[in-house]
Structure formats: structure tokens, C-alpha cells
């Protein structure tokens, strides 16, 4: 089983076979997290650096746990406490880290393209943990893993992604991944949140939640950022919730065995009503569990000596 890549920067460039390899490998890592001793020696002596320029508890903790469960040494660097505050450029930070010889650098950054810049500059493997509005490959992989585990397949499923599509890396990565695996994807949100020409990505576009989720197998709700209100992207959270909140009122439009997903953190009552978030359709917590397995799988597949 070979993943012939130095880096995981996005879903767009992955082939269907590569995605299957990652998902299958992730499946076998689930069991480790259920053991008494949640550790295997596989990455013993390897160093994984989590370089997070954007605040994140969920993703960073997930990567940290993934590394530690594989017995790797994981180091967390968050930009606010590092030399970045002193004005060090991304490139200099990367070169300094490279000189300390880690094996994998996981980077989250608010500027699209930052991981690509890094990957071209340092010899270590780079995993993109989210770059601006561009891609969040590990999120899409864990989302697909969750759907596959519940539905047994990804082909010919109808998936609706709802929310601020324009600013969402989760949306983009999932669109690439789900389409590659044969699913149908619809996006929905206020017109101001639909990016230009997105139909060219092969998705159907809706400006109403009810339209988008009719008879779907999976609903993926995205997080709304309050700051967008000040950019006149939407008038108020109240109005957004009235039009786009997933709740008991509209969930029945989807299939009876619909899956409700959210990358987190949830704005309860804005994107999803609390009873749906905690209810029987929700697989939000499975997503989190699968996230650790997917990240373990990637660390496992990317590391190793060169033959």
C-alpha cells in the first residue's frame, strides 16, 4: 500500500484510489482508540509539529492525540505565542523548523496557499489542516469516513452542504471528495454566501434550505462566522437562523435515515437547533472520533524511511 505523495495539501489532487486507501487505513485505526492502552509503537521516535496560525482546539487536539497514539513526539506551536508575533515570516519559521528535522508538519493558516508555499520550501511532509477558504482535506476525509461507515457507501448518495459556502474550506474539500467518490452534491445558503461560478464544480445551487435538503441522505451544516455580518454578507444571525437553521420543522423533508453533520464548533440555534444537534440523526460526535483515526492514518501513510 503506497501513498506516493510527500504532502496532503488538498482533496482536489487525490485520486479515488488514494482516498479509498486513506479511508480503509483509517478504519483499522478506530479500534486502537477503544483499547485500555491507546498506543501503538508505529511512529515511535518520529516528530510531528502542529503549526497552527489560526486558533483551533478541535483540529489541533485531534492531530495531537493522533500523533501520540502512534507514539510520535508531537509539538504544538500556536502563532500567537511564537516568534510570529515578533514578525517572523512563514518561510523563516518553516526553515527554522526544518532545521530541527521533524518528520511531519501539520499547518493551519488563514491564507489560502500557505501549505503549498511551505511544501515547496521544506523537505518534510506537510499536512494541510485548513488554509483560508481553500481546503481542509482531513475534515473531508473524516466526513466521508463517517458517511461510509453509516451508509455503507458513498456512490449515489445525495449530500446537501448548507451555510457560508463562499468562505468554507470544508465545503470545497467535501465537494471535491464526494464528487470523486460518486455522490451528488447540492449547496445552499444566502445568495451572498454562494461563491462565483460554483456550478462549474458540478454541484447544484439552492437559495433555500428546504429545496436543498429534499430527499437527501446527508445534510452537512457549516458554521456561520459572526464577522461576516459586518461585511454585509447577511443582515443578522436572527434572519439567517430563520431561513437556514436545521430543525424539527424542516428535517422531515430529508430521507428518514438522513445523517446530520457539522464540522464544529456548532452555533446552537443558528445552524442547527439543539434537539437536532443532539438527536438521533446527528453523527457529529462520530465525526470527531473518526477524525482521530483519519489523522492517524495519514501520519502512518506519510511517514517512513525512503527505500
Amino acid at each position: 500500500m503506497i501513498l506516493e505523495r510527500k504532502d496532503i495539501l488538498g482533496i482536489k489532487e487525490l485520486s479515488k484510489d488514494e482516498i479509498l486507501l486513506i479511508l480503509d487505513t483509517a478504519d483499522s485505526f478506530i479500534e486502537i482508540s477503544t483499547r485500555e492502552i491507546k498506543k501503538v509503537p508505529t511512529l515511535r521516535g518520529k516528530t510531528v509539529i502542529n503549526l497552527f496560525y489560526e486558533a483551533s482546539t478541535r483540529t489541533r487536539t485531534s492531530f495531537e492525540i493522533a500523533g501520540k497514539r502512534l507514539s510520535a513526539d508531537t509539538i504544538n506551536i500556536s502563532a500567537s505565542t511564537s516568534s510570529v508575533v515578533k514578525g517572523e515570516t512563514l518561510l523563516d519559521t518553516a526553515r527554522n523548523l526544518e532545521a530541527m528535522n521533524p518528520d511531519v508538519i501539520v499547518i493551519r493558516h488563514s491564507a489560502a496557499g500557505a501549505p503549498h508555499m511551505l511544501a515547496g520550501m521544506v523537505r518534510q511532509s506537510i499536512i494541510n489542516a485548513g488554509d483560508g477558504a481553500h481546503e481542509h482535506p482531513t475534515q473531508a476525509l473524516l466526513d466521508m469516513m463517517t458517511i461510509r461507515a453509516k451508509k455503507g457507501r458513498l456512490e449515489n448518495l445525495n449530500v446537501a452542504i448548507v451555510g457560508d459556502i463562499a468562505h468554507s474550506r470544508v465545503a470545497r474539500s467535501n465537494i471535491y471528495g464526494l464528487k470523486k467518490m460518486g455522490a451528488q452534491v447540492a449547496v445552499a445558503g444566502p445568495a451572498t454566501m454562494i461563491p462565483r461560478d460554483i456550478e462549474q464544480m458540478g454541484v447544484s445551487v439552492h437559495s433555500s434550505l428546504d429545496e436543498a435538503i429534499k430527499e437527501v441522505d446527508v445534510i452537512m451544516m457549516l458554521r456561520i462566522q459572526i464577522e461576516r455580518q459586518h461585511q454585509n454578507i447577511f443582515p443578522s444571525l436572527r434572519e439567517y437562523a430563520q431561513r437556514f437553521c436545521l430543525s424539527k420543522k424542516n428535517i422531515s423533508l430529508a430521507k428518514k435515515d438522513v445523517l446530520v453533520m457539522h464540522p464544529g464548533p456548532i452555533n446552537r440555534g443558528v445552524e442547527i437547533s439543539p434537539d437536532i444537534a443532539d438527536g438521533p440523526y446527528s453523527v457529529i460526535l462520530d465525526q470527531v472520533t473518526n477524525g482521530v483515526a483519519v489523522r492517524m492514518a495519514l501520519l502512518y501513510l506519510l511517514t517512513g524511511g525512503k527505500a
Binding site: 503506497i2 487505513t25 483499522s28 485505526f29 502512518y300 517512513g304 524511511g305 527505500a307
Partner: peptide, 11 residues
Amino acid sequence: QKTNKKPRIGK
């Protein structure tokens, strides 16, 4: 760690 060829992990 000898090669990049990772064997398939079974359950």
C-alpha cells in the same frame, strides 16, 4: 520504517 510501502493493516 524501512520503506514507504506500508503493509495493509487488518483489524
